[in-house]
């Protein structure tokens, strides 16, 4: 089996995450979908590292994880504070910034 199958899996997972962002309204679930997309990218990075024969891809994936962790912390804090003021965690309810 070729490692390319991992890349195909990664692409499919990424697509599922993207569609999830589009269709879900709960901000937390949207956030989970973003995490899913990041994981999909990580999978492809690891696979590329293997195909290329260097560890740089794995280091990249490591950095992506760190950034994702930081992002989750801040993002969830934002969701919390929005929920505290608006009593809602729906992304559709935060629509004041428009025409």
């Amino acid at each position: 089996m070729s490692p390319t199958n991992y890349l195909l899996l990664s692409g499919l997972l990424f697509t599922v995450g993207a569609v999830g962002v589009l269709v879900r309204r709960n901000a937390i679930v949207v956030f989970m979908c973003i995490e899913l997309m990041l994981n999909a990218v990580n999978l492809s990075l690891v696979t590329f590292a293997r195909i290329n024969g260097t560890l740089d891809g794995q280091v990249m994936a490591f950095f992506v994880m760190v950034v994702a962790a930081a992002e989750v912390v801040v993002g969830l804090a934002i969701i919390m504070s929005i929920f505290r003021t608006r009593r809602s965690s729906s992304v559709d309810d935060a629509n004041l910034l428009k025409y």
Partner: peptide, 17 residues
């Protein structure tokens, strides 16, 4: 054109996709 700015994040995400 500004009617496109609905304020819904998911619409923007759709156009990004």
């Amino acid at each position: 054109l500004r009617r496109l700015q609905t304020g819904f994040v998911r619409s923007y995400a759709l156009s990004m996709l």
